[in-house]
Design a protein around this nucleic acid. Structure first.
Length: 452
RNA sequence: UCCUGAGUAGCUCAAUGGCAGAGCAUUCGGCUGUUAACCGAAGGGUUGUAGGUUCGAGUCCUACCUCAGGAGCCA
């Protein structure tokens, strides 16, 4: 069983973090963290410590420390918590450029031998790793991903905050099934009522946009889709701007500036993390700038040519939505995100404004991430006519009384307005170059897993 | 919901229908510059579950369970 935790620290050396060690060269400092790995070569030990900011290798020659310190470290188990004091020394042999000449160590909690830390440095299967997600998070790659995620979320909010947007978060609990109940999580809401977890705050932020002009929301959303792919979670985070007096072209400019800002921020401070994760930084550097814009018709023509040239297996039928292989082909033709606009209105959401030049098309845009990561942004200009919106609600057999408040927005000073939503996890998967969105969030919720 | 694949030691995987194996992890021993260290040794098994075929099943058959990848749908 586990030994007791002691928190007293007997050293007088100043505390430091591993990420800041370059500023402490030649100094004796104390780190608080965990034992990440331990190699031994007779009377010389090479413990690797981690503290959440990085890892550092310690050097422990038997002759240089007390018998107690040497024996304690020699027999220490992986992921035991500790404080370690030593002198920071530059060393060209070290991956980070620095090593720690250990002077003393204090163990807070020693991991028992009979229950060793389950995540080893060797490979593991997906099921095992997800079952131990709470411990998997400690590995350098997973920690790096979460640091990049935090920057992406901060940069996303920052872009709107510094451009005159007001954050107005919509409710998580919603009263009615807006677009069909099959993909909604349902729950009891007192007495005889039902409530549903939100699958998008869009309708609500249309209301706040008409109150405040430029708004955005940022929070978790839920979809009970029985999707089992590398791009799907049942709970994911979405950031959604909504702007009064904005039309489709302006919306595409907004999306372009938004993504460019996020990528720029990640490149500014996460090259080391991206290297640990294994992402090709050059591919991210190519993203900054203007993005190609294709109409649905142009994208269809591109797929048509690709099929005739034998580059894709199945032909794309004009009038149908693009499938996953179609999107992958289109995005592979560019090294930047691609914006595809003006899809046929027939398979798009009821609230999308028709194109005045071709009412069979909707004024909408999807942004496809490079490298086959699929749709990261979906947005549109919204219908601003009361009569048109009402008839669309009826055509889609949606309950009119549930949308009365939404129709009110077209009754009291309606204006053109537009917005989009970006799924954070897909953006993180693309920017980090991950195989699956389950690694982009601390605890992924998927079709088959809700533990831990 | 549909299609495909996989379940064997704590983990990752081997094993023509014929003795249950390896690497890593753990424990013990060795090694003063290791980078997933290395070398030697030990312990560790209800082969996903239930039935069936067979002299004999991890292996073949049936059903079920779990997981993974994909399709559809979506961010």
């Amino acid at each position: 069983m586990s030994e007791s935790v002691t928190t007293h620290v007997t050293t007088s050396a100043p505390l430091a973090t591993i990420a800041s060690l370059s500023a402490h060269e030649g100094q004796t400092i104390t780190l608080r963290g965990w034992l990440y790995n331990l190699r031994a070569s007779g009377k010389l030990l090479f413990p690797i410590f981690r503290d959440g900011t990085g890892t550092i290798q310690g050097i422990v020659p038997k002759a240089a420390v007390s018998e107690e310190v040497f024996e304690t470290l020699k027999n220490l188990t992986l992921e035991s918590s500790l404080t370690v004091t030593g002198k920071v020394r530059a060393d060209s042999r070290a991956p980070s450029g620095f090593e720690l000449d250990v002077e003393s160590i204090e163990v807070l909690q020693r991991v028992p031998e009979d229950t060793p830390f389950p995540i080893t440095l060797k490979e593991h299967g997906v099921d095992f790793l997800m079952e131990h997600r709470h411990l998997w998070l400690r590995t350098p790659r997973q920690s790096a991903i979460l640091r990049v995620r935090a920057t992406i979320m901060r940069a996303a909010a920052e872009y709107f905050d510094t451009n005159g947007f007001i954050r107005t978060d919509p409710p998580i609990l919603t009263p009615n099934a807006c677009e069909g109940t099959s993909e909604l999580f349902e729950m009891d809401y007192f007495d005889d009522d039902k409530a549903y977890l939100t699958q998008s705050g869009q309708l609500y932020i249309e209301a706040t946009a008409l109150a405040l002009g430029k708004v955005y929301s940022f929070g978790p959303t839920f979809r009970a889709e029985k999707s089992k792919t590398r791009r799907h979670l049942t709970e994911f985070w979405m950031i959604e701007p909504e702007v009064a007096f904005l039309e489709l072209d302006g919306l595409m400019n907004l999306a372009e500036g938004f993504i460019t800002h996020i990528v720029t921020r990640v490149l500014e401070s996460h090259c080391a993390d991206l290297k640990v994760i294994g992402k090709d930084i050059a591919k991210l550097e190519a993203v900054v700038g203007t993005f190609p814009r294709l109409s649905y018709d142009e994208a269809h023509a591109m797929l048509d040519e690709a099929y005739k040239a034998g580059k894709i297996e199945a032909p794309h039928k004009y009038g149908d939505d693009f499938g996953s292989p179609d999107e992958t082909y289109i995005s592979s033709q560019f090294d930047k995100p691609v914006m595809i606009h003006r899809y046929p209105a027939a398979f798009k959401a009821f609230y999308m404004q028709p194109d005045p030049f071709d009412p069979t098309k909707a004024l909408c845009v999807d942004v496809l991430a490079p490298e086959g990561y699929g749709e990261i942004i979906g947005g549109s200009q919204r219908i601003d006519s009361y009569d048109l919106l009402k008839s669309r609600i009826e055509e889609h057999h949606l309950p009119l009384d549930a949308f009365q408040w939404y129709l009110d927005l077209r009754k009291y000073g309606s204006v053109p307005h537009a917005g989009f939503g970006m799924g954070i996890e897909r953006a993180v998967a693309w920017i980090c170059g991950l195989d699956h969105v389950r690694e982009t969030i601390p605890f992924a919720r998927t079709l088959n897993r809700i533990y831990p």
